[in-house]
Amino acid sequence: MKKVMFALVWGILAGTGFAGAASSAPTADKIAHKADHMAFYQGMDAKGKIELVITDKQGRTRQRVFNMLRKDSDESKSDQKFFCFFQTPADVRKMVFMVHKHAEREKDDDRWLYMPGLDLVKRIAAGDKRTSFVGSDFLYEDISGRSPAEDIHELIKTTDRWYILKNIPKKPGDVEFAYYIAYIDTKTFLPMKMEFFKKGDRCYRIIESVKLIPVQTEENGTRVIYPTIAVSVARDLESGSTTKMTRSNMQYNVGLGDQIFTERYLRRPPRDAMR
């Protein structure tokens, strides 16, 4: 009986011990999902202005500015809708780029482009998500989010500051990298740095979050603060090009309606997007 009791107590202790370890150091998958949530899914919707300054190896700069609206789908939390209203440069001014993002891996996103000069609503074929977003060093997937389900996550180190994850693509043929290392802030769970490697452990691309800001909002009637990446920098080590992305006027849970992400507003953007 004593032996049984001892075994039981030991078992409970061991069990709680395991649980304790799990809560202080979550699994790699949990970290990856939480980081994805923090970077791309905070709030039910969001709006803000995004400025991209692209500086090439020779120091020449180009600027892209657009207002972005985002809304999460009511049915499936991981589907999202995006509405980008371009302000500069001149050749894309007042163009609208709209995306219905589908989180399911097999389902391509739906994309539209509105060209005001021709009053033309163009449907765009879902392309390679690893292509440059508006000519910057950020890729399409860096803006809309890369689903954690696409990679195998491995927690390689935990420090006071960071969970360091190694992410290996499940389908290496679909991407240009062999793996990437993500430094996830232990407090905010925001990805603070991502280093992309090609075969032979050659780092060729780095994205860093250089400034975070707290954005106040309301969630179910209570005041909350969403830590938000205000400035991030993407560096292409192969081309020598750098892009600085600055978000301003960030607001969450503004109550954007689903109707905004339709042809009506594509042709005449809402004031929320124009301001």
Binding site: M192, S209, V210, I213, P214, P227, N249, M250, R275
Partner: peptide, 18 residues
């Protein structure tokens, strides 16, 4: 190493059309 700090200040004022 780059220091990441969370600057605590009020959210930027909303751009309103007057």
């Amino acid at each position: 190493m780059i220091a990441f700090k969370c600057n605590v200040h009020a959210p930027e004022a909303r751009e309103e059309h007057v």
